[in-house]
């Protein structure tokens, strides 16, 4: 957790609200989530259009399990996001963005509480942790 990390996190409160129910920037992703460190690694996520479920980009398609996610070096992740947005799959997804990983975590785990909750389900309902159902194709 270096100093540069500190910088992106400072933006949080200002931008947080553009996310969900609100208009303005429409379908663009919550800026807060899209801010990443210049170093470290990220995974790419979205919600599925049809059922809204959280999914993660894998080597071949999208999965409900972050454990299957493909890990990108932060130097490459912007390009990877652009590419993911350009595929036909993107039409079946809402809000594709990158999620910084916690380098000190065992396994693939996002750095922020918000993304951990997206990845592993509501903390108050461990029984609702995501299970693999299908891929997006």
């Amino acid at each position: 957790m270096g100093a540069s990390l500190h910088v992106w996190r400072l933006f949080v409160p200002v931008t947080a609200y553009y996310a969900c129910c609100l208009e303005r920037i429409g379908s663009q992703v919550d800026v807060r989530n899209n801010r990443r460190d210049t170093t470290g690694a990220s995974v790419i996520t979205a919600n599925r259009l049809l059922d809204g479920r959280t999914v993660w980009l894998t080597q071949q398609g999208w999965s409900e399990q972050i454990a299957h996610a493909r890990i990108f070096d932060n130097a490459d992740v912007e390009d990877a996001i652009k590419q993911a947005k350009a595929t036909p799959d993107a039409r079946k997804l809402v809000g594709i963005y990158g999620v910084q990983l916690d380098p000190s975590a065992a396994g693939i785990s996002p750095l922020t509480m918000r993304e951990r909750i997206r990845a592993f389900g509501p903390s108050v309902h461990p029984d609702f942790a995501p299970v693999e159902i299908s891929h997006v194709h």
């Binding site: 379908s27 259009l49 809204g52 479920r53 995501p130």
Partner: peptide, 24 residues
């Protein structure tokens, strides 16, 4: 695909449908 997410959002919101962290 005839409506973008941007255009659809106010229509679904008028019917009480949000997209949240895990689902709608």
């Amino acid at each position: 695909g005839d409506l973008s997410e941007d255009e659809f959002k106010p229509l679904r919101l008028m019917n009480g449908l949000y997209l949240q962290l895990h689902a709608y």
